[in-house]
């Protein structure tokens, strides 16, 4: 029988991953109304950056061999670089396009990244071992919790606090919040649009890299398709939280993580394979109750 504390840590760490991914999507949506479907592929890209390019089944560590104090900043930078590059190459040319066209082109960009990874690394999932020591359980409150889960929970809190500070205390943060509120008005008042958008993409890419590090350590697998599932959940979390609302994205990420762990624990055994169906039914129910999201940004209300 799993203890309550165990459940709590499972939910908090899964929710933390979802929350970080959702933040990455919400940041970009806030400044340019772009639903970035390529976000999941940034995560996959960062995971694969850890290993030597080859189609062999056995993965040889490449970046992953570096010590942590070097690896973490380099990978975060790489994620940020990938996101900024995609903005520069694709989305910068679509500033006047409709949100639907932008969404489809981000879908297409994700497709390109995924197939490029497939071509370079092959389609088979690969076993990787990054910091295996972190999966050893430690005793907390009578539960056996892998050290990594604790780190995930702490990292999420740290990231959220750092982001909140950045948004509240720096000039870039102020400009981003202004842009999220009303982009046209912000530009008229001297907010530098390209700086804000590039900044949002860089932050979003770095968040994707953080998620990639956690997933690589936790699952020990590098799979080209690993970005898709998490992107879907993160995307849903962003909407449930209220599009454009960063606290909402975090809260909804934790909510979905919690619901998914609880369903896994308490659903009767014969319907447990259908867990995701229940989860998504809850999502639809949640949207019906609050279509504008749990924490709708004030700018999200349509004005007539």
């Amino acid at each position: 029988m799993t203890s309550l504390a165990q459940l709590f840590f499972d939910a908090a760490s899964l929710g933390g991953i979802y929350a970080m991914a959702a933040l990455g999507i919400a940041l970009i949506f806030g400044v340019m109304n772009l639903v970035n479907f390529a976000h999941g592929e940034y995560i996959a890209f960062c995971v694969f950056a850890l290993i030597v390019p080859s189609t062999e089944a056995v993965a040889v560590m490449f970046l992953g061999k570096a010590p942590a104090f070097l690896l973490i900043p380099v990978l975060l930078g790489l994620g940020a670089g990938a996101a900024v590059a995609s903005e520069y190459v694709v989305f910068r040319h679509m500033r006047k396009a409709t949100p639907v066209a932008m969404m489809i082109s981000s879908f297409a960009l994700g497709f390109v990244i995924q197939n490029a990874l497939l071509a370079v690394y092959g389609g088979r999932p690969k076993a990787i071992s990054l910091w295996p020591d972190l999966n050893t359980p430690v005793g907390v409150l009578g539960a056996q919790v892998p050290l990594l889960q604790l780190i995930v929970v702490l990292t999420t809190l740290l990231v959220v606090c750092a982001l909140a500070l950045l948004l509240k205390k720096t000039r870039l943060g102020l400009e981003m919040r202004a842009a999220a509120e009303n982009f046209t008005m912000a530009r008229l008042l001297g907010v530098r649009a390209n700086v804000v958008i590039t900044g949002a993409f860089a932050l979003s890419g770095a968040l994707a890299a953080a998620v990639a590090l956690i997933m690589a350590t936790q699952t020990g697998v590098a799979d080209v398709r690993m970005g898709g599932q998490i992107m879907l959940v993160a995307f849903i979390a962003t909407v449930i939280g209220g599009l454009g609302s960063l606290p909402g994205a975090v809260a909804a990420g934790f909510l979905i993580g919690g619901a998914s762990v609880l369903l896994q624990a308490f659903l009767p055994l014969e319907v447990r394979p259908f867990r995701d169906a229940f989860l998504y039914t809850l999502v639809i129910a949640c949207l019906l109750l609050r279509p504008q999201g749990l924490f709708a940004a004030s700018s999200a209300k349509p004005r007539i």
């Binding site: 639903v35 879907l232 995307f235 849903i236 909407v239 599009l243 259908f274 867990r275 995701d276 169906a277 998504y280 039914t281 999502v283 639809i284 949207l287 019906l288 279509p291 504008q292 999201g293």
Partner: peptide, 24 residues
């Protein structure tokens, strides 16, 4: 059910519908 929503919330609900069908 889904069309009681509009805009992006409706799109997400259709996504959730797809995931439900696929899971089942």
């Amino acid at each position: 059910t889904i069309l009681r929503l509009s805009g992006i919330a409706a799109s997400i609900a259709t996504f959730a519908f797809l995931a439900i069908v696929n899971t089942v």
